[in-house]
Amino acid sequence: MTAYRYDHEVIAQWIEPGEKVLDLGCGDGTLLRHLVEVRQVQGYGVENDPDKLQASVRNGINVIQMDLEKGLVGLEDGFFDHVIMSLSLQAMHNTQGILHEMLRVGREAVVSFPNFGYWRHRQSILNGRMPVSESLPHQWFNTPNVRFFTIADFDVLCEMNGIAVRERLAFDEGKLVLEEPNFLASVAVYRLGRAA
């Protein structure tokens, strides 16, 4: 998962200095450490994998062990300025539940995910094979991903759930995509809020 860290730059631009930030599925803590360094955030990671948790501790960030499928139980409403989930939403079963929880404990949510509607992925399916790419690096039989959705799908989900899309940036393997993102972008990064 190291190839796609350009979403970190986008995320950092949306964070104000000194914010309270929660990073769900923080892995080894690379993003949070970056945000501490460039934005001086008071940051907390959430991780349920013991090895990644240990890596986060070694990386010098705060990390809380929690099973995200069970929500963010115990965290206070509106406590965080931003709640981030970088390239992990597609690996969760309780998609709507976690989005709701992110916007419960955070003023805004930042979500990035691989776009299954990317043209190379479509081409792969047309050729009769499940896509394997830079943004979807796993084979079908060993992927941690459990939800397969496109940028268009996600927009509909937000609409259905009263989630306001405040900003969206889409990328084709690191390059900004301005037109036809659902076809041309491999990864999307969203800034979300609660619809008024």
């Binding site: 008071q42 013991p50 986060s56 990390v63 809380i64 062990q65």
Partner: peptide, 12 residues
């Protein structure tokens, strides 16, 4: 956390 203190937590 409520007090914004640095804290890590593991449930082994």
């Amino acid at each position: 956390l409520h007090n914004k203190r640095n804290v890590s937590y593991a449930d082994i």
